[in-house]
Design a binder for these strands. Structure first.
Length: 207
DNA sequence: GCGACAG
DNA sequence: ATCTTGTCGC
């Protein structure tokens, strides 16, 4: 995507698993598709699933991705013209211990462009929630302000993004077939509140 | 051994 | 992720 205005982009999706309270094994696997740039809900799907893999930091994909793939297959089967052109995924992409978080898994398995959107920093490759990091967060003055998440290896693993008016940033990383700059710009353009609207709507749908 | 730990 | 208590801002 080289066009600054995202010409041709009409549908942005969000995927999420929301867990039943008090039951670690049952969850609602949800997909929403929003119009772009209007951010109106075009499609919602929620399917109760039995989750078997435990949550282990660094292995989120093995717990969640099978059900997210099924949700993408359902929209393709039932409403193919509403299939999203890009997915915002609750979790990380390249910002991961092994450089391959849930947003990468889902992208490869569905062949859809995917963007990792995490609400908390995954502490990997020297990145830490330390005083330096908190100071970098304080330096983000306005919605859209960013700083790169550069690991000890020297690689830029993602970007911290101040969305809207919230002092707590989002952690954006490449999932699949989207560069980091485009990922940050698209997420920013989907934000009415701190959480970008496709993920906010899918979490509302799940609960 | 202890702390850290996306969702 | 969920739960719980309290605070701030619109």
């Amino acid at each position: 995507q080289k066009e600054p205005s995202f010409a041709g982009l009409e549908r942005v999706g969000g995927v999420d698993l929301s867990y039943v309270k008090g039951d670690d094994s049952r969850a609602c696997a949800s997909l929403v598709v929003l119009s772009y740039p209007g951010l109106e809900v075009l499609y919602e799907d929620c399917q109760m699933v039995a989750v078997s893999a435990p949550y282990v930091a660094g292995f989120l994909a093995f717990r969640e991705v099978p059900f997210l793939v099924e949700a993408v297959q359902r929209v393709q089967q039932e409403e193919p013209r509403l299939k999203p052109q890009v997915l915002l995924v609750d979790g990380n992409g390249l910002l991961h211990h092994r450089g391959f978080g849930v947003a990468c898994h889902l992208g490869v398995l569905t062949d859809l462009p995917c963007i990792g959107v995490a609400k908390n920093l995954l502490q990997v490759d020297g990145l830490a929630r330390d005083e330096l990091h908190r100071e970098q967060i304080r330096s983000l003055q306005r919605g859209g302000d960013t700083f790169p998440l550069t690991g000890t290896s020297g690689n830029v693993l993602g970007m911290a993004l101040r969305s809207c008016n919230s002092s707590k940033p989002l952690y954006i990383s490449v999932g699949h077939r989207v560069c980091l700059e485009t990922a940050v710009r698209l997420v920013q353009s989907c934000c009415r509140y701190r959480i970008p609207e496709p993920i906010r709507q899918v979490q509302k749908q799940g609960s």
